[in-house]
Design a protein around this nucleic acid. Structure first.
Length: 221
DNA sequence: CCCCCCCC
């Protein structure tokens, strides 16, 4: 397949009953078949973890298909690819415009109120407020950052989006600067999680990605 | 072939 890397996971080293190992996953987008997660381990990690870059297009052969692990993988695909040491992977230096940078599965505007808690969804909304980042002590004693935004939901309504961790810094800071300077960014949220604390809201998880896809200037009469 | 998602 020829596909673009849309996300790259962290390198995980583990030690369990079967011994030591390392593993990492990345996500691919193909122009016809859409998105799929790829996982590889050990010697394949050594060859490719440092090489694979988000947004680049690769030709990949000889991966094996297996059912998607829906607990960890929220992509719209019932399959995953596992790459073993016999894989063939090469970078396509000619950018292929037929493959998007990311794929979003947007639900109808009225739907979020009826979406079940913990659902993973995508959303494309105008950001109408951005609160400062604040430190939060997690239940495990580790400190993290939290930043609450409001996304325009329908006329007169907004839905809260809570950013956690690193997303508060680069992306959250940029969004705050845009609002402060009189712009309304349109934010695409890939893989946000629906929360049910005093009404429905959305929060980021570690696989959430944020994209600013358009910017409106504030209207002045 | 690991990770199970953070605060009120």
């Amino acid at each position: 397949m020829k596909a673009r890397v849309t996300a790259k996971g962290d390198l995980c080293c583990y030690n369990n009953a079967r011994g030591d190992g390392k593993v990492f996953s990345f996500d691919l987008l193909e122009s016809v078949d859409g998105e799929i997660r790829v996982t590889c381990s050990n010697v394949v990690v050594d060859c490719f973890y440092g090489v694979i870059e988000v947004e680049k297009v690769y030709l990949i052969s000889k991966g094996s298909l297996k059912p998607a692990q829906k607990n960890f993988n929220h992509l719209k695909n019932q399959w995953e690819i596992f790459l073993e040491a016999n894989l063939i992977m090469e970078h396509c230096p000619n950018e292929d415009g037929s493959i998007a940078r990311q794929q979003f599965s947007i639900r109808p505007i009225s739907e979020i109120e009826n979406v079940e808690n913990d659902t993973i969804l995508d959303a494309i909304r105008i950001v109408i407020t951005v609160n400062p980042s604040v430190p939060i002590m997690r239940k495990n004693g580790m400190e993290t950052q939290r930043r609450i935004l409001n996304l325009k939901y329908s006329s007169g309504k907004s839905v809260e989006l809570t950013l956690w961790g690193e997303l508060c810094n680069k992306e959250g800071q940029l969004l705050q600067e845009m609002l402060d300077s009189g712009s309304y960014p349109v934010l695409a949220v890939k893989s946000g999680k629906v929360n049910d604390f005093s009404g429905k809201s959305i929060r980021t998880i570690s696989s959430t990605q944020l994209f600013i896809i358009q910017i409106f200037r504030r209207h002045v009469d």
